[in-house]
């Protein structure tokens, strides 16, 4: 049972104000964690610190008890995979090639792909239901297909933990749910997943644990199950607007809506 733990993280960009102060977070295999909060609350920063892309000024990030920064960068990439919010390829590649790029932490700069690497790529394509797309040009895919292919590509790193920055922000309703169900399925298969998202309602339906970040406290304002975190008083304060929460008519998970302050005073 693998686990990625960030403890007492303090982070500020060079010569900027602190973004995170004394923040704790943990991603465990088999669990889906959602990082939510207003813009500028430090969700994406925390995610980048947790995957070792940025070093915190204080605090540590540990994978199974060993500091993430003591691992070589390739070892790190074989344990923790990161998917940034917007991926812009310069040159056109086929879907198959895009997923092959994910083998880099195993293949390295000089070796070529072996049979085993090909098998992993094919398995990842199957797992994300992208087999039919494999010969297509990546840039010609729809938003939902692209996101599935990118998830296949980070799965090809054979990591234990997946960290995704707003994987559904550019998708329509149907594809948002498709991506979250895929992530949920992956957690059931044993991956640990953390997702930054603005979509509180979908996160509430799928995630096991939620961290609500706020810039007012430079860190975690509330933490727990979705129904513990998504409460009117907390959300109204953090988002600085009138928020109503009611149970979802079918799933029973919290459903968050914002009231227009002018029309419903």
């Amino acid at each position: 049972m693998h686990e990625l733990v960030a403890s007492h993280i303090t982070f500020a960009y060079a010569s900027g104000p602190p973004i995170l102060v004394d923040v704790n977070a943990q991603v465990a295999c088999g669990k889906l964690l959602a990082l939510v909060g207003p813009n500028g609350a430090g969700k994406s920063t925390l995610l980048r610190v947790m995957c070792g892309l940025m070093r915190p000024q204080r605090g540590k990030v540990e994978f199974d008890g060993a500091s993430l920064f003591s691992l070589s960068s390739l070892e790190r990439a074989r344990r923790v995979a990161f998917l940034p919010q917007a991926v812009n390829p310069t040159f056109s590649l086929s879907v198959f090639e895009v997923v092959c790029l994910g083998r880099y932490p195993h293949v390295g700069a000089l070796r070529t792909m072996r049979q085993k690497d090909h098998d992993v790529v094919l398995r990842c394509l199957q797992e994300t239901r992208c087999d039919a797309l494999r010969a297509r040009d990546f840039s010609e895919l729809s938003g939902g297909e692209r996101q599935r292919v990118l998830i296949a590509a980070i799965l090809a790193q054979e990591p234990d933990i997946l960290l995704l920055d707003e994987p559904t922000s550019l998708l329509d309703l149907h594809h948002q749910i498709e991506v979250f169900s895929l992530l949920k399925r992956l957690t059931r298969e044993g991956y640990g997943v953390a997702v930054v998202t603005h979509d509180l309602n979908t996160a509430a339906r799928f995630c096991d644990h939620m961290l609500l970040l706020s810039s007012s406290v430079h860190g975690v304002k509330a933490e727990g199950t979705p129904s513990e975190v998504l409460q009117e008083s907390i959300l109204s304060e953090v988002y600085e607007t009138e928020v109503k929460v009611c149970p979802h008519p079918i799933t029973g998970t919290p459903l968050v809506t914002v009231l227009d302050a002018e029309r419903y005073p």
């Binding site: 892309l53 070892e75 390829p89």
Partner: peptide
């Protein structure tokens, strides 16, 4: 192999240990 990675996406490349 590294140029493939940064040509695809710089941050993704960094996440893969480049």
């Amino acid at each position: 192999a590294k140029l493939d990675q940064i040509g695809f996406d710089v941050e993704l490349a960094a996440g893969r240990g480049i």
